[in-house]
Amino acid sequence: MKKILTTPIKDEDLESLTAGDVVYLTGTLITCRDVAHRRLIEQGRDLPVDLKGGAIFHAGPIVRQKDDGEYEMVSIGPTTSMRMEKFEKDFIKQTGVKLIVGKGGMGAETQEGCVENKAVHAIFPGGCAVLAATKVEKIEGAEWKDLGMPETLWINKVKEFGPLIISIDTKGRNLIEENKKVFNEKKKPILERINQQIGFIK
């Protein structure tokens, strides 16, 4: 059975989740990436949206404005979450955001922020932007449009948005960091073997 999170998300919704679990989201999902993070944390500007119990998506979509002025989500996939690492711990603390969706893992500071404030980071499969767009029922608003199409805060009504693979849980596990350790351990013996066969300079 599909595990579905609904906004507003409560602490207890997240406590049982473990890195590697697959969940889906129904409710409001707001795009929020580089400059929006910088404006809140570095410049101290108020975010134009309330994220308490909310969900953000590290994403810069392609949006089309229809003739009646309504926005249509054309293509929306995740962007590299690690770019927001510098800001995310403070961002979680200040906004009360509960679910951060993006691509790839995030670092130790975000991990701390997730444990301290009961939040999670989840991976939506990168590049699957049309699949994601088909899960957006409606664009309910757009804030900070001065940032241009990719960086605008697009407020999306989503239904069973996913798969979302939990990469950082509330208990301090960090899936991608764990995986990276394994990759790095495997690397040395593989290279030793390869290097025995490529001594082309004689």
């Binding site: 994403a59 293509s75 499969p125 590049g127 049309v130 088909t134």
Partner: peptide, 17 residues
């Protein structure tokens, strides 16, 4: 599923073109 939907809906398959 994504590539199938992109083809059918005639949309960029990844938002980052």
């Amino acid at each position: 599923q994504n590539q199938e939907a992109a083809d059918k809906l005639d949309r960029p398959s990844c938002q980052d073109t």
